Amino acid sequence: TLKVHYKYTVVMKTQPGLPYSQVRDMVSKKLELRLEHTKLSYRPRDSNELVPLSEDSMKDAWGQVKNYCLTLWCE
């Protein structure tokens, strides 16, 4: 499951381990945003700071799954 905080919160079913490009595509379609305006980030467990997502950091983000849910933020 993927939970995304935006102006409102959406929850989507997804497969764990998807690459950033696929996750961003899913989120942009769900929120009806243009792909270039979809910026995603996540919060590591040991931090209060949001970390921007990229293809490289997506593996780390999937490591933050809690209760089968990855929580992301969209700007």
Rank of each mutant, 00 (worst) to 15 (best):
T1L: 12
L2C: 00
K3P: 00
K3Q: 13
K3T: 10
K3C: 02
K3Y: 12
H5Q: 03
H5G: 02
H5L: 06
Y6L: 09
Y6I: 12
Y6R: 04
Y8E: 14
Y8V: 05
T9E: 04
V10F: 11
V10L: 07
V10K: 03
V11R: 09
V11C: 12
K13W: 05
K13H: 10
T14E: 04
Q15S: 11
P16D: 10
G17T: 06
G17S: 04
L18R: 02
L18Q: 03
Y20E: 01
Y20V: 00
Y20T: 00
S21L: 08
Q22F: 00
Q22T: 12
Q22E: 14
Q22A: 13
V23S: 04
V23W: 01
V23E: 02
V23A: 02
D25M: 14
D25F: 06
D25H: 11
M26Y: 10
M26S: 02
V27P: 02
V27C: 02
V27S: 01
V27N: 09
S28A: 15
S28L: 01
K29S: 10
K29W: 06
K29V: 06
K29L: 06
K29E: 08
L31A: 01
L31E: 01
L31N: 08
E32F: 02
E32N: 15
E32G: 15
E32I: 04
E32C: 15
L33Y: 00
R34G: 12
R34A: 13
R34M: 10
T38V: 15
T38W: 06
T38A: 06
T38R: 01
T38M: 15
K39D: 02
K39T: 09
K39A: 11
L40E: 03
S41W: 15
S41R: 09
S41H: 12
S41P: 03
S41Q: 08
Y42S: 01
Y42H: 06
Y42W: 14
R43F: 05
R43S: 03
P44A: 13
P44Y: 02
P44M: 07
R45W: 12
D46L: 03
D46E: 12
D46N: 15
S47P: 11
S47E: 07
N48P: 11
N48Y: 10
N48D: 14
E49M: 11
E49F: 12
L50Q: 03
L50V: 05
L50P: 09
V51R: 10
P52W: 01
P52S: 06
P52G: 04
P52M: 01
L53T: 00
S54V: 03
E55P: 10
E55T: 07
E55Q: 07
S57H: 00
S57L: 08
S57G: 09
K59Q: 14
K59G: 13
D60S: 02
D60Q: 11
D60C: 08
D60R: 04
D60P: 04
A61M: 00
A61Y: 01
A61D: 07
W62Q: 00
W62F: 02
G63H: 15
Q64L: 02
Q64C: 12
Q64F: 06
V65C: 13
V65M: 15
V65E: 12
K66C: 06
K66Q: 15
K66D: 15
N67Y: 09
N67L: 14
Y68I: 01
Y68S: 15
Y68N: 15
C69S: 10
L72E: 06
W73R: 03
C74T: 04
C74F: 00
E75D: 10
